[in-house]
Simulated assay, not measured.
Amino acid sequence: MTKKQTTYQQLMKLLFISEGIWWMLVLVCYAVFPFGKWGVKLLHPEMLPLWLVIPVLGVLTWFQWNWKAKVYEQYSGFGSTRMLWVKFEPVKAFLHYFLLRSTYFFIVLAMAQPVAGSRKVNGSKRVLDLVICLDISNSMNTKDMGGGQTSRLTAAKQAIGELLNQLKGERIAVVVFANDAYTQLPLTMDYGAAKLFIPDIETSMITDQGTNIGRALEQAQEQFKDTESGKAVLVITDGEDHENLWKEQVAALQKKHIELAYLGLGSPKGGLIPNNPYDASEGYKRENGVAVVSKLDKTALARMASASGSVLVVSNSAFPNIYDIAANYKNSKNKQLMKVEFNVDKNYFYIPAILALLCMICYFFLPILINPDKR
């Protein structure tokens, strides 16, 4: 066996031993040191599987070294000129591999972003509290949405769900109303909880039927008593206000600089009001023996919106377009700038990043640091 082949075999042993020691140290550090108690964690642990590229790099290096050793042996007796392109320097070859794989190792660790502890940061954000007033009078059971296949209440709940998907950080509350009103969901930023509550809203929740938008606006203002945030109210209704008590409340909202918007649901043609929204066989609401037809009162909604300079969106779709209203709240002038203090994780990604940079610098300057074999 030639000297160069023996050197190659020793180099491969060094490769396997160094990799074994490296990963053994990684496992020992993970198992022995109480990283959890120290508050050390990774923000993106899903990056760590990228380390699996390292064994692939090792296999490719193995093939390269094997090829170079064989070529070096084959042409070793033909003089130095013909040997320039097949130089095989074991020490430099190993250090090239070690520095390159170490660079990659630390880059992946930096991408995983190790953090430990936290620090307090003072900042500010623009905040808005939004109260959604949802009409649950019996007329909202009318199926004249989406070509007569969907009730107004179902379309309203779908609109609220889409609105929640588009909001970014606003606190929301839900007030349901008919002739009376009460708070179904207090102000919260937990959109997940809101999405659980909203599908359960039914017209049977309020026995005192009718449509009293003024009472809903009054109840909505109760949510703003203990808040310094910007304030906004969205009224979702078919517009059939039988009490006409909204004017006083609209004036109160304007004095308090509370933004108001309306989403009107229903069609001009209208539809019948079912006695039981779940069983059409029970018939429809009748007065003096005549079936009651409920229509969208667009004129009343326009009058209310005009009185307060509010946004009005009218729809007869099963999935009302809520984009204009959501955009209005995102860009609302009512948003208040509030100073907040919050905790931020101390990110130490720069430590593995610096180690990766040092390894890369050593990799490029290795030919200068180690003189090539002149023999």
Rank of each mutant, 00 (worst) to 15 (best):
K255R: 15
W23C: 04
F106H: 04
A327W: 13
Y8D: 01
E341R: 10
I351Y: 10
Q158E: 12
G283S: 06
S137G: 09
V293A: 07
F319M: 09
N179E: 13
F105Y: 03
Q10P: 02
N347G: 06
K333N: 14
G169C: 04
Y75C: 14
K87L: 08
Q336A: 13
G283M: 05
S315E: 05
K269T: 15
G123Y: 10
K231D: 00
Q249D: 09
L99Q: 04
F63V: 00
L355D: 06
Y191K: 01
L128T: 05
M140Y: 01
L42C: 05
L312N: 09
F319K: 14
L355G: 02
Y363D: 05
G58N: 13
I322M: 08
L167C: 06
L153E: 03
I213Q: 02
A159R: 03
L301S: 02
Y363I: 00
M83W: 11
I21E: 05
L272D: 06
A300M: 15
W246Y: 14
E282I: 11
Y182V: 09
I258Q: 02
D345P: 05
E19V: 00
P367W: 07
F197R: 07
L84P: 00
F364W: 08
T150K: 02
H96I: 12
P199C: 08
L14H: 09
L253P: 04
C359V: 00
L60C: 11
G117R: 00
S310K: 12
A193K: 11
I273E: 02
L134Q: 01
A326P: 03
N275L: 12
L60Y: 14
S139N: 03
W65F: 12
A307Y: 15
L134V: 12
L187Q: 07
E243G: 12
A181Y: 03
D135I: 11
I370F: 08
I54M: 03
L100P: 02
F16Y: 11
D324E: 15
A116K: 03
N141E: 13
L130T: 03
F364P: 00
N334K: 15
T211E: 08
V313K: 04
D208N: 14
T237I: 15
Y191M: 01
I236Q: 02
F197D: 03
A110E: 02
K68H: 12
N347R: 08
V86G: 01
P186G: 07
L196Y: 11
L369G: 12
I132H: 02
A173Q: 00
A302L: 13
I132L: 13
Q184G: 07
S118P: 05
S137D: 05
E248W: 13
I258G: 05
V91K: 12
G77C: 13
C362D: 08
Q184T: 15
